[in-house]
Amino acid sequence: MTLLLAIVIGALYAGGVYMMLRKTVVKLLIGLAMIGNAANLLIFVSSSVVRSHPPIVPKGSSAVPAPYADPLTQALILTAIVIGFAVLAFALALVKRVYGEVGSLALEEMTVSDE
């Protein structure tokens, strides 16, 4: 499964990059979201891929039984997912504002930032 997941991650990155290079800002954001998912998966896969052993201490035991998924990366990814959402929302708000100011979502027309 690791190989398959690696391929999925590669595809997510490739798709994300391709979307980011499109003309429209909205596609750029979709690409960004895809890369965010890909990065989370990459962290997840790089620790370990173990079937159905959540890092939870069973009742009556004092420690997690031996093959378990790495809890630290999970904690990392969990906050990353939530913050990724907030960042995406921020980016969308920005896009909306830009559209209000520039009247276009084509990246070529957003070359002047100040002055």
Binding site: A6, A11, A14
Partner: peptide, 10 residues
Amino acid sequence: VGATMAAITL
């Protein structure tokens, strides 16, 4: 990029 990232993942 995709191929590189897949390799890195592996």
